[in-house]
C-alpha cells in the first residue's frame, strides 16, 4: 500500500492508486492532484485502483461527479474487495481492464536531471502513438504524422518532427520545441497554436518558442 494517491498514464487514460488512508483523505488528495493537472488530463478516462479498501457506491458516485467537473470520466474501478467491486458494477463501471499494452508510457522510466523529469524515446514514433508526460520529452528518431506528444516541458526531436506537439501543456511558456526538421502538423506551446507554413528548400534544424505571445520558429545556428 502507498501512503499517497499516485497517478500513472496508461493507454486507457489515467490510473489512480489510492493510499491506505481513509476515503476522505484519499478523495482530497485525488482532487488536489486532478486540480493541478486539469489542463494536462482534460478529457481523459480514469481508472481507479482501490486495492482492498472498501468503497461504497455513494462514494464512487460522488467521486465520478467530482471528476466530471474537471472533464474526467471515471469508467473503471479495480478492486480486490468484493463489496467495492459490487458497488462499481452497480454503477455500471468496468471492474477489469485489458492487459496494459506494450506501447503505453508506463513502460518508460523517467530520467531525472536536476529535479526536472524527462522521458527518452530511442525510436520513431508512428501514427497513433501518443505520449503524455509531465516533464520534457526527447525523441531520438522521427515523429510521424498522426503521432502526438503532449508535454508539460520542452520537446526535443533528433529527427523529423511531423506529428502534433504540445509543449508547456500546463501553461509554461518558457519551453522550446526543436527538431532537425521541424514540420509538425500542429505546434502548440502553452496556450498558443501554430500551423507550420510550407517550407521551401532544404530542411534545417529549427527551434520554436514563444516571443511576445506568438509562436516563433528560428533556424538553429550553432555558430551564433
Amino acid at each position: 500500500m502507498l501512503n499517497t494517491v499516485t497517478a500513472k498514464g496508461i493507454r486507457e487514460g489515467i490510473l489512480f492508486h489510492l493510499s491506505d488512508q481513509n476515503w476522505e483523505t484519499n478523495l482530497q488528495a485525488l482532487v488536489r492532484l486532478v486540480k493541478d493537472r486539469q489542463k494536462f488530463w482534460r478529457g481523459a478516462k480514469v481508472v481507479l485502483d482501490t486495492a482492498n479498501v472498501e468503497v461504497t457506491s455513494d462514494q464512487l458516485l460522488s467521486l465520478k461527479d467530482e471528476l466530471s467537473h474537471y472533464d474526467l470520466n471515471l469508467w473503471a474501478v479495480l478492486s480486490e474487495n468484493s463489496l467495492t467491486q459490487q458497488a462499481a458494477q452497480f454503477l455500471g463501471l468496468a471492474t477489469r481492464i485489458s492487459r496494459l499494452e506494450k506501447d503505453t508510457m508506463a513502460d518508460f522510466e523517467p530520467i531525472y536531471h536536476q529535479g526536472e523529469p524527462a522521458i527518452f524515446f530511442n525510436k520513431t514514433l508512428r501514427s497513433g502513438f501518443r505520449i503524455e508526460f509531465d516533464g520534457n520529452v526527447i525523441v531520438y528518431g522521427d515523429v510521424n504524422p498522426g503521432a502526438e506528444i503532449i508535454a508539460s516541458g520542452s520537446v526535443l526531436v533528433w529527427g523529423k518532427l511531423r506529428g502534433l506537439v504540445h509543449a508547456g501543456a500546463l501553461g509554461n511558456e518558457a519551453v522550446v520545441v526543436c527538431a532537425l526538421d521541424l514540420q509538425p502538423t500542429q505546434l502548440r506551446i502553452a496556450e498558443q497554436i501554430a500551423i507550420t507554413p510550407k517550407r521551401h528548400g532544404k530542411p534545417q534544424p529549427e527551434t520554436a518558442f514563444i516571443r511576445d505571445g506568438k509562436v516563433i520558429a528560428e533556424i538553429w545556428n550553432y555558430k551564433g
Binding site: D103, L125, R126, S127, N144, P145, G146
Partner: peptide, 9 residues
C-alpha cells in the same frame, strides 16, 4: 505507419 507501429509493439 500505424500498422507498422502496432506490429512493432
Amino acid at each position: 505507419d500505424r500498422i507498422i507501429g502496432l506490429i512493432e509493439a
